[in-house]
Design a protein around this nucleic acid. Structure first.
Ligand SMILES: [Zn+2]
Ligand SMILES: [Zn+2]
Ligand SMILES: [Zn+2]
Ligand SMILES: [Zn+2]
Lengths: 131, 131
DNA sequence: GCAATTGATGTAATAACATTACATGGCAAT
DNA sequence: ATTGCCATGTAATGTTATTACATCAATTGC
């Protein structure tokens, strides 16, 4: 999935997430972009949908929030599983990937005859600074 | 964490989840329990909080919904990670546990000096019937 | 050029999910 | 009886996400 040129709204949302310290909810993004002309949730959600599709952004299900992808390259996402640690203290989110987990999960779900479309792995806890 | 006697509201919510085919949102549970005298979301959320604490119910983050635990015994939850496959076709949810995954995640997270409190693993896709 | 299509955008309204605040009731310990 | 504790009842509000409909711009085919 090659990433096409981003539209104006997509660029604005991408920029907001990229410059943010941590994850942001759609409504937080909306507030940040009011000065840029954003007025309604849908402007954010539509941009996010595309950015998620392109793999530039991830959704954190346990937070109802979004983060910019921190992968150096795209290719990690093509077949891979993305996992996150999420610190409850400072909000820091760390994205990581691991083949061993992928393969083990793959084996387990194959045993159920289950066809995976998307895998969510989110680990809530405290980072080294906030322990 | 021994499970105390459930209160009336907790029993009603537990019953609704246990007899349900699949996961239910808090508001769906509320509707099912109107005849039993439930009138407000808080009655459901309060009961769910306790049931989650006792490990009798799990929350599916990617669905904003809840399922009864299907473990034969409690002891799987004490130290363990709970994972789910969720079929987008029929809504079927299957809970499973795997030590290999737990250990691998534990190793990876320790490498970050991260202290895990709760791990979410949810696999969306299609079950054998809905492939 | 011009209609038709397509994709992005704008706006309003509504739906779905969750929490805060405050009042009440039951029951056990003192 | 008073106190403390926990479960409950009720209303209001806050937060997250979608539906519906109108408009605009770029492209395509004629
Ligand atoms: Zn990523
Ligand atoms: Zn931290
Ligand atoms: Zn369980
Ligand atoms: Zn299915």
């Amino acid at each position: 999935m090659a990433t096409p040129q981003l539209t104006k709204n997509q660029s604005l949302v991408m920029g907001a997430l990229a410059h943010s310290e941590g994850p942001m909810s759609a409504y937080t993004i909306l507030d940040k972009l009011r000065d840029q002309g954003f007025r309604a949730p849908l402007q954010v959600y539509r941009a996010l949908d595309k950015l998620l599709e392109y793999g530039l952004v991830h959704r954190l299900e346990s937070l109802n929030a979004f983060v910019a992808c921190t992968c150096p390259d795209d290719h990690e996402h093509d077949r891979g599983v993305t996992a996150f640690t999420i610190c409850e203290g400072c909000g820091q989110v760390t994205e990581f990937h691991d083949e061993a987990i992928e393969e083990r999960l793959s084996t387990l779900v194959r045993g159920q005859n289950f066809k995976t479309e998307k895998t969510t792995i989110e680990i809530r806890g405290h980072c080294s600074s906030c322990a």
